[in-house]
């Protein structure tokens, strides 16, 4: 599918892990688009490409990405479709897998913070 650059265009995002679908404007990153609709599925962290919790893998479709920390997505991984959701703007309908994890508060934390 050819990438569509119209920033007002709205695309459908499919989170394969939870089989959820939501719509996201081309001018909004995949994480913001999801949160604005009150939807869940991709962990939400710094929204700046620095912390890595919203790591995803694009399975199909096209996104435009902006700088993300190499601490979390190497160049090789990026070639394979890995990205941070807060750095991806949809340019077509997108299907993705969630890779990043938020530490769960239930049962994991045995020593205060960890």
């Amino acid at each position: 599918m050819a990438a569509d650059m119209d920033p007002t265009k709205r695309w459908t995002i499919h989170i394969r892990d939870t089989d959820e679908h939501y719509d996201c404007d081309a001018g909004q990153h995949l994480l913001k688009g999801m949160l604005q609709l009150g939807r869940k599925g991709i962990p939400s962290g710094c929204h700046g490409g620095g912390c890595g919790v919203c790591k995803i893998r694009i399975v199909s479709g096209e996104v435009e990405t902006i700088t993300m920390s190499r601490a979390h997505v190497s160049e090789e991984e990026q070639q394979q479709g890995y990205a941070l959701a807060c750095r991806c703007f949809p340019r077509s309908d997108v299907s993705l897998d969630v890779v990043g994890k938020m530490q769960k508060t239930v049962c994991k934390r045995r020593y205060g913070f960890v």
Partner: peptide, 12 residues
């Protein structure tokens, strides 16, 4: 309450 991000979301 600690928010979930407090000890998970941070940079290097």
């Amino acid at each position: 309450e600690l928010n979930e991000a407090f000890t998970t979301v941070y940079t290097e």
